[in-house]
């Protein structure tokens, strides 16, 4: 049994944008891992891929040499390449594509391979740092007295697409919103449900939590007192919602 873990660079587009181009292609190819005995995960963050593969030595080596020669990424930096007595990951996960993700899988990797991490050389340390700094981000246990805002929409493929979640995203992508008002609104579910959703947003690295300030409250009041446009009402009526 063996584990190979590496970090590599995603390609740049002609216009210089760093994108995980071909990620869907890589995923399709990786689906073959499901059929074999290979487990682990692949994730992407700010221009870099991070992949961990565990499984029978021969299969892992074959897969790794294939992957490392793939033109859809470059500058691979091997972090782990050693025999293991048991797996850390039971399944093959590729669902961790969040751009700024405090992934549970990544944390598990850090915990399991802590000894390897402590003996990393400079290049490996620089590599892992592109992901490792997320370790310092912790969930805000308490949102009381805080303003909340979403910097981006969550991946709706991996999160509930319920109307409540969508309504919450609509609200929080527009303006900083006080936690207390989210609870008072009631349309976003119970207090526990709101906190659960906020925790999930935070773990995805898309939630900004700031101290409540008067000016931000004023902005919300302005939004709330704004009369809905007649077009908004007409569309609702057309959709059978009003």
């Amino acid at each position: 049994m063996k584990c190979i873990a590496y970090i590599s660079k995603a390609p740049l587009t002609k216009s210089g944008v760093c994108l995980p181009i071909g990620l869907s292609g890589i995923v399709k190819a990786s689906n073959r891992n499901k059929k074999s005995d290979i487990t682990g995960f692949l994730c992407y963050r700010k221009g870099y891929y991070f992949q961990v593969m565990e499984g029978p030595s021969e299969e892992i080596e074959q897969l790794a040499s294939k992957i490392l020669a793939d033109s859809r990424h470059s500058d691979p930096c091997i972090l782990i390449d050693r025999s293991i007595s048991e797996r850390c990951f039971r399944t093959w996960k590729i669902s961790v594509f969040n751009l700024v993700d405090q992934s549970q899988l990544f944390k598990k990797f850090i915990e399991t391979y802590e000894i390897d991490l402590s003996s990393f050389n400079e290049q490996q340390k620089i590599g892992i740092k592109k992901f490792y700094d997320l370790k310092n981000i912790s969930h805000s246990e308490n949102y009381e007295g805080k303003n909340l805002r979403l910097k981006a929409w969550p991946d709706l493929n991996s999160m509930s697409q319920s109307q409540t979640i969508i309504d919450l995203c609509v609200k929080l992508t527009k303006v900083s919103y006080p936690f207390e008002q989210l609870i008072e609104d009631e349309k976003f579910g119970t207090r526990d449900q709101v906190i659960e959703a906020l925790n999930e947003f935070e773990s995805l690295g898309i939630l900004t939590v700031t101290e409540s300030e008067f000016s931000q409250n004023q902005e919300i009041e302005t939004l709330q007192t704004k009369e809905p446009s007649s077009f908004f009402g007409a569309i609702k009526k057309f959709l059978g919602m009003g």
């Binding site: 944008v17 994108l19 669902s95 594509f97 751009l99 981006a152 929409w153 709706l156 493929n157």
Partner: peptide, 28 residues
């Protein structure tokens, strides 16, 4: 489509949106 490939495509697109500072949902 299989779930993982759809999610992967969504992430490619989300990366481009973030590059342009566009806060937009990606839906199927």
């Amino acid at each position: 489509g299989d779930e993982l490939s759809i999610a992967a495509l969504g992430q490619e697109v989300r990366a481009m949106l973030m590059h342009h500072n566009v806060v937009a949902p990606v839906v199927n």
